[in-house]
Amino acid sequence: MIINTGGRTDTVQYYTDWLLTRFKEGYVLSRNPLFPNKVTRYELTPDRVDTVVFCSKNYKPILPRLSEITDKFNTYFHYTITAYGKDIEPGVPSIEKSMETLIKLSEQVGAQRVAWRYDPVLLTKDYTIERHFEKFERMSKTLAPHIDRCIFSFVEMYKKLQANMPEIIMMSVEDMDILAQGLGKIAAKYGMTIQTCGTNGDFTRYGIQQSGCMTLDILGNANGITFRNLKHKGMRQGCHCIETRDIGAYDTCMNGCKYCYANKNPQKAFENYKYHNPASPLLLGELKETDTVQQGAQKSFIKEH
């Protein structure tokens, strides 16, 4: 099975001690977001976990102790660095600091295990198509030698986003095409593999691959292991990733990104943080008498030789 540590929240940036403790103790509990009284236990041991996938906007807090995980597990790291500033991503370090940290991460774990996420791509009066090209080129020039690939997607216009970010400009099909063409051209200039993730539309004519961002091919090649040829069910519509198990919780990320899909609103995460206990097997709170704990299915995807 694949463990995802960062799909619901930025555990690396805000819950580093908890995350390292869970791997040290060898198990974690995850509360079902739809049925809160149902809790699943996952064993965090190398014989039960094929790969640990991380996704964060700031790896600096975990770098000094990351080897506690990488020495034992196959790993892959998604590092999100966008064109936006504090006006859209208030809790995220600057582009320069983020690039410095990505390079340090890459030096520690190997470029083949690091993907740079440039997503979501969205438009406002300040973040124009031209500004995206300018920022993307500057970052590509610096990051290309230190990453496995670049992954981008266009923002999804769901209702919560329109309420939290009224300044967003609806992106047309033509806008997407112009952006894809420009990003593809820049990526080619720096010899960088680029792909979409969960984005409708075929941009292969611009040198942009169509793939899930967490496929068994990507994870296997990064770690020198061979997985069985399994169907990738995806995590949502338009997704081509392998099925994973997320150990985080919604409404707990304090980055405060206006486009965030995992928080109802930025303030909710700060309110929930007071329920976090780094020693608890749950990210938020403790087990209750009314909770039902079940063992999660942890079948290996690795091909037997």
Rank of each mutant, 00 (worst) to 15 (best):
I62M: 14
V28L: 12
K60H: 08
Q112R: 15
T16V: 01
T16E: 03
T70C: 04
G6H: 01
T75K: 10
T75W: 05
Y14R: 09
S56N: 10
L63E: 08
K104C: 06
T16F: 00
I103N: 12
R117S: 09
P90G: 13
V53E: 01
T82F: 09
D47Y: 09
M99N: 03
A83Q: 08
T21H: 10
N4D: 11
T16M: 02
I2H: 02
T45R: 03
P93Q: 14
Y14I: 03
T75S: 10
R65L: 03
F23W: 00
L20M: 02
N32L: 12
L102Q: 11
F77G: 12
D126P: 04
R41S: 05
D17S: 03
N58Y: 04
R65W: 00
E43H: 14
E68F: 02
K60T: 05
D87P: 03
R131D: 04
T16P: 01
L19D: 02
T45I: 03
T21E: 06
K38N: 14
P64K: 04
N4W: 01
I81C: 14
V109H: 11
E130D: 07
R41T: 03
D87L: 07
R65I: 00
T5H: 06
D47T: 06
Y59D: 10
F35E: 06
Y118H: 08
S67E: 15
R117G: 09
T9G: 06
S106E: 07
Y15N: 01
V92I: 15
D87K: 12
N32T: 09
P93W: 12
Q13C: 12
R22D: 00
R48G: 00
I88F: 10
R48E: 01
T9N: 05
V114A: 04
L63C: 08
M99S: 06
T5N: 10
V53D: 02
T9L: 06
T101D: 10
K72Q: 08
I62S: 11
I129C: 15
D71L: 05
V92W: 13
V53P: 08
G7N: 08
I3G: 04
T70K: 05
Y127C: 07
I69K: 06
L20Q: 00
T101V: 12
G26H: 03
K72P: 01
I129K: 15
K57C: 07
P33S: 11
E96T: 15
I62C: 13
S98W: 07
A83T: 10
F77Y: 14
K97T: 07
N37S: 15
P36K: 15
I129F: 14
P61L: 04
T101L: 10
D10A: 02
V49N: 14
D119F: 13
V121M: 10
E96Q: 15
N32F: 13
K24I: 01
A111N: 14
L34S: 15
G6P: 02
T11M: 04
V28G: 08
S67T: 12
F77S: 11
E100F: 06
N74K: 12
S67H: 14
I62F: 09
V49R: 15
I129E: 13
G7M: 05
D87S: 11
R65M: 01
I81Y: 07
T51S: 10
N32Q: 14
K57A: 06
K86E: 12
G110S: 08
P120H: 04
N37T: 11
P120T: 02
L19C: 03
W116I: 05
V28A: 09
P64R: 03
E100V: 05
D71C: 08
L34W: 15
R131W: 06
Y59A: 14
Y76V: 04
Y14K: 06
L122M: 13
